[in-house]
Every structure is written in structure tokens, then in C-alpha cells.
Computed example of a mutant assay.
Amino acid sequence: MTSKIINNDFSDITFGRRSVRAYDENYKISKEEMLEMIAEATKAPSSVNLQPWRFVIAESDEVKAKLKPLIRFNTVQNDTSSAMILIFGDMHCYEYTEEIFDSAVEQGKMPVEVRDAQVSAIVPYYKSFTEKEMSDIVKIDSSLAAMQLMLVARAHGYDTNPIGGFEADQIADAVGIDKERYVPVMILSIGKAAGETFESVRFAPEKITEFK
């Protein structure tokens, strides 16, 4: 797959990012490039590399229509974006432990004895978590991937907007996935920005930092 990255300027990607509300509604990102961006975004770290993030790309008019009443404060993004990327955390991510660590062994990235020790420790440990503890872990890890995806999108020449204002108890049903297993983390709108964007203010580091 040929990379479609068009911008490798770290400063521009990181400090030039803006949350975009309106997009060129005639521009559609291909499935191939969307998967490329997901692959690049999921280089993000996760707890013991269990990669609990799961993505649903809502790009059809039909699915966007289902989302619209559930994101009532962000309907412009929904209507004009190339896609709405729904990010969920998999509460059963530990079920993939062996698959992940077996792959690491096959690729020469981990000795067999390390794989065996890791698998025997990780699975029972994760199974011991309360629902809240597991939810916290998968949401933190999935948020790391979400932030990386926003930066990756910018490197590809696109803009995004992270959306947390949605009906969390209904979003999984709207896209037909198991709401007991997959917890909603956030939604990212993505596309080509339409119109001017504006820089928002931030606290000075001295206000939010303590040295001990």
C-alpha cells in the first residue's frame, strides 16, 4: 500500500490542528485510505498491547441519519463530513491476548518463554477487573488511538473534530454492535475543512503544572 501522507511537518500537524465543524460535503475519503489511517493511528500504545480500540466508520447517508438524533449538538459535522468515526473500547479485549502474543513470537519480536509468562499473567489479571476498572482502561487506551488518529488525519491532508456529546447509551445499537461488550469512547468527524478555522485559547503551563 502506497502511503497517502502528504504532510510530515511535525509542528504544522501538531500545533496547526483545529477542531473543524463544517466540511466539504462533496469530498469522500476512500476506504483504502481510511484503513491506512487506522493502521497508522493504532501504532499508539495500549496497556500490555491489548489494543482495545474498535472503529465503526459511518459514511453512508443511512447510518448518518441514524446518528443524527444522537449527536444533536454536532449535526453539521455529521451532515458534511466524509465520515463519522465511532470509537469504542472492547471490554473483552483480553480474549485476544494469545493471538497478539503468538503473532509477536511469529514475527521474532518476542521469545516464546516471554509470551507464555505474559499470557498466563495478563488473562487472569484482566478477568479480575470490575466493570468500571475495565471501562476505564479501554477508554484511556482508545483515547490514545483517537488522538493519534486526529494527527494522522492531518498528515493525510484532512481535518477532524472530537465529539463527546452524544447519547452514549444508544450509539452502539444505532450501528448494530453489542453495547454490553463495546463501550463508546468518542466520535471523530473527518473530512476536508470548509471555511475558516480558528485557534482556541489554552491555559499557561504554569497554571496547570506543579513541581514537587
Rank of each mutant, 00 (worst) to 15 (best):
V175Y: 11
A155C: 12
I171Y: 07
D178P: 06
M147E: 05
E167H: 12
A155R: 08
A172R: 09
A168R: 14
S135K: 15
I177V: 10
Q148F: 09
N161F: 02
M150G: 01
E167R: 04
S143G: 14
Q148I: 05
G157N: 01
V138D: 14
L144E: 03
I163S: 01
G164N: 10
I137Q: 03
E167G: 00
I171T: 02
I163R: 05
I140F: 12
E180F: 00
Y158R: 00
I171Q: 10
D169Q: 11
E180D: 13
E180W: 00
S135N: 15
L149C: 06
A168G: 15
A155D: 09
Y158N: 00
I177S: 00
A172L: 10
M150W: 02
I163D: 02
T160P: 12
G176L: 14
L144P: 00
G165Q: 04
I163M: 11
D159M: 10
S135I: 06
I140P: 00
D178Q: 01
L149V: 13
G165C: 09
K139G: 08
V175W: 13
Q148H: 13
K179I: 03
I140Y: 14
S142K: 03
G157A: 04
A172M: 06
S135H: 12
P162F: 10
F166I: 09
A168S: 15
D178K: 08
L149N: 06
M147A: 14
E167W: 03
L149G: 09
L151T: 05
A172F: 04
K179D: 13
Q148S: 15
I163T: 07
D136W: 08
K179C: 05
D178L: 07
Q170E: 14
T160N: 07
R154E: 08
V138T: 12
D136M: 11
G165W: 03
D173Q: 14
V175M: 11
A174K: 05
A145T: 08
A146K: 08
V152K: 03
R154Q: 15
V152A: 02
D178G: 05
V138S: 07
M134R: 15
D173S: 15
D173R: 14
Q170D: 05
L144M: 14
A168I: 08
F166P: 09
G176R: 13
L144V: 07
G157R: 02
H156F: 14
S143T: 08
S142I: 12
K139M: 13
D178V: 07
M147V: 05
M134T: 08
I163F: 06
A174L: 04
A155Y: 02
E180Q: 02
D178H: 08
S135R: 15
S142L: 08
A153P: 01
D141Q: 06
L144K: 04
A146F: 09
S135Q: 15
M134A: 04
H156D: 02
